[in-house]
C-alpha cells in the first residue's frame, strides 16, 4: 500500500517530477509543492470553482482531482496562460470593466471564460452565465464579468474577420 507516490507531469510546459502523498489534491500540489499560488483553494468540495485549472486541455476542479492522478498529464494554471498571453485580452477586459474586486475567484473565472470562448465563439449572455455558474464570485454580482466575457467574444470575432 503506497501512501506516497512518484509522479511526473508537465506543468505550464515544464517537466516536473515529485513525490507526493496519495491524498494530496492537484491544487494543493500546485500551490504547496510548486508554489504556483495563482490557483486558489476555496470550498475544497467542488462548489466554488476557485481552484479551476486545465488538465490535458480541459478545465477541472483542482480540489476534486488528486495530484497522483495527474501522472503523465499536462497541467496548465493561471500562471501558464498568463505568461503565454493566451488570455491577455480577457485579463484586460476584466480590469477595464471592474469584473474583479478581491480577485479570489478571478483565476478560476478567467480559465472558465477562456474554456467557453474556445468552444463557442459567439455565446449569448445567458450561455455565459450558465458556463460560469460553477464559479462563485462574492464581490461583483457577476454582471461585470458577463460584460467582460461578452466584449472579448465580440472583439475576438471582429479580429477573425
Amino acid at each position: 500500500m503506497n501512501e506516497m507516490c512518484d509522479i511526473s507531469l508537465t506543468v505550464n510546459g515544464e517537466r516536473v517530477s515529485e513525490r507526493v502523498e496519495a491524498r494530496k489534491s492537484l491544487v494543493d500540489f500546485l500551490r504547496d509543492d510548486l508554489t504556483l499560488t495563482g490557483s486558489h483553494v476555496g470550498c475544497e468540495h467542488g462548489v466554488c470553482g476557485a481552484c479551476t485549472v486545465r488538465v490535458n486541455g480541459e478545465i477541472v476542479r483542482g480540489c476534486l482531482m488528486l495530484a497522483v492522478q495527474c501522472d503523465g498529464a499536462s497541467v496548465e494554471t493561471i500562471e501558464g496562460v498568463s505568461d503565454s498571453g493566451e488570455i491577455a485580452d480577457l485579463q484586460e477586459a476584466f480590469q477595464k470593466r471592474n469584473a474583479l474586486q478581491c480577485g479570489f475567484c478571478t483565476p478560476g473565472m478567467l480559465l472558465t471564460a477562456q474554456d467557453l470562448l474556445s468552444n463557442d465563439q459567439t455565446p449569448s449572455r445567458d450561455h455565459i452565465r450558465e458556463h460560469i455558474s460553477g464559479n462563485y464570485c462574492r464581490c461583483t454580482g457577476y454582471h461585470a464579468i458577463v460584460d467582460a466575457v461578452e466584449s472579448v467574444a465580440q472583439a475576438r470575432k471582429g479580429s477573425r474577420k
Binding site: 489534491s25 475544497e44 468540495h45 467542488g46 480540489c63 482531482m65 488528486l66
Partner: peptide, 23 residues
C-alpha cells in the same frame, strides 16, 4: 471521476484506507 467521492474525502465524511483508481 471522483467528483462526489473526493469531495466526501475532503470533508472526511469517508476515510477509506485505499483508493482504487479506475481511470
Amino acid at each position: 471521476g471522483g467528483q462526489s467521492l473526493i469531495a466526501t474525502l475532503n470533508m472526511r465524511l469517508s476515510a477509506p484506507r485505499i483508493l482504487i483508481d479506475l481511470n
